[in-house]
């Protein structure tokens, strides 16, 4: 869907314009993002910096935090999510009302970062769909603002496709290691089972 087919009528003193309803709605939505900060770890330091005077997130209409997920439409996942935290994150996401957006703040939220271990969730997209990933450990406020603008852009387009990051392990490599199936699908299924089964 293309956006902003805006028509401005000449000669109108008041300067009114017509547009499609969805476009207007998207436009309004993208500048009034009510955020729910799900802040867990180191990225909180940069999140504070982002909210504070120098970088001032309020310029982009995304500064008002709502501490109830039911009132928020943008979920900031700031920091590492452990396996123990994952059900809580999912609950919070489920409690949010549509339309809802998710921004993965930092490498840990995006893919688990360098915590490739027994306790860390390798990216929140394993549990909830994510709209924008902001890499960095922690990301600089500038890159977060960039991510925020990308999200606004996505909202304006009415695009609701969740993003996907590449899996950490290349299934083709695993296939050769496991040496049980030639198909990558089978190998990947085995990998998934390996990673999720109980001992």
């Amino acid at each position: 869907m293309t956006a902003s087919q805006t028509y401005v009528f000449d000669g109108s003193e008041q300067g009114f314009a017509t547009t499609r309803f969805e476009d207007l709605l998207n436009w309004a939505q993208k500048y009034s993002l009510f955020q729910y900060p799900f802040v867990t770890a180191c990225c909180a330091m940069e999140f504070m910096a982002l909210a504070s005077p120098r970088f001032d997130m309020a310029r982009f209409g995304a500064e008002a935090p709502r501490f109830s997920p039911r009132q928020a439409d943008l979920l900031w996942v700031v920091g590492t999510i452990s396996q123990r935290q994952a059900p809580i994150l999912k609950t919070v996401y489920d409690q949010m009302a549509d339309p809802k957006y998710v921004l993965a703040f930092g490498t840990c939220a995006s893919c688990g970062g360098f915590y490739d271990n027994y306790t860390t969730l390798a990216g929140i997209d394993k549990v909830i769909p994510v709209d924008v990933y902001v890499p960095g450990c922690p990301p600089r406020p500038e890159s977060v603002i960039d991510g925020l603008l990308l999200l606004q852009d996505k909202i304006q387009r009415g695009d609701r496709t969740p993003g996907i990051v590449k899996p950490r392990t290349d299934p083709r490599v695993v296939a050769s290691q496991l040496a049980t199936g030639h198909s990558t699908d089978v190998a990947h299924a085995q990998l998934v089972e390996l990673r999720t089964s109980k001992p």
């Binding site: 123990r84 994952a86 997209d125 394993k126 549990v127």
Partner: peptide, 14 residues
């Protein structure tokens, strides 16, 4: 690297 997840992963992500 042996994880023991508490929630089911989204099939499209895994």
């Amino acid at each position: 690297q042996h994880t023991q997840p508490l929630v089911e992963y989204r099939p499209e992500a895994v």
